[in-house]
Amino acid sequence: MKRVIALKGAAATLIFYSLATGNAAANLDQHDLEMLKTAKNVEIVSQKIAKAYFYKHMDIRRELADKDLKESLDQLKNDLLTLKKGITGKEETNVSKFLTYTGDELDQALAKPYSKESGALMIDFSESLLEGADFLSTKHGKGKDGEVGMLTQVENLLFLLERVNKYYIAHKAGFKDYNNVVQLENAVADFEKGLAKINSYGHYPLPLQDSVKKINKFWPVAKEFYLGVQQNALPVIVLASTDKLEQEVNALVKFHHQEAEREN
């Protein structure tokens, strides 16, 4: 949810920038930004839904998982409607149909009792939602240089933490097929690439330098949990470890959000 708020803030900043550069362009950019913001929301809720689903069915912090699942589903429904209203052209229409279709299939799977089959589908539906949303956010994503670019990078780390956690808990639930293992490994590698960019950013104030240090300290431990090196780790500890990482990444998101506003 914090990521969603940050994106809304970034969108507001960019809308302000667009307004300053002319009305016609502003209208176009507002549309792009609205689509970008909504598509980015879908990317993160897609991962949260599957993650919460497995935590719930594995009875790990069940109440919290249930709450997360419900909130993410509500968010998804609203976002899909917004995207549907904003699409243009055949390709986007197809992607929107694909998202709606996946949303409907997801609802049907959620209405059924938990099973190995519905669990497998849940992972894939979350990937489908991500796939469609990624297409739209790439298409409508503009102004990704400078601080806005850094903001996108840091927000992507939050998304990757959700994704890694989703695959970790799905693996614990018994979904160990080739594709899931590859996707988990890719997400871990992507996180490290993003972290390298954060490490090479030279403008963090002292308190945030501390956050960067903490991320670098916690990450190798969390990575071992995710990749199954620490086979005996309790999922509840892994979840707490992810929360801790998210907390530090969120501090960076807040900073880059302010910097992006200042830059524009």
């Binding site: 992607v95 299939e105 497998a120 796939e131 469609g132 996707q183």
Partner: peptide, 17 residues
């Protein structure tokens, strides 16, 4: 759905779906 999935170059796959 198949068109979108098969044309994707993201490296993500949905085998069960």
């Amino acid at each position: 759905a198949f068109g979108v999935m098969a044309k994707s170059t993201s490296g993500r796959f949905m085998p069960s779906m």
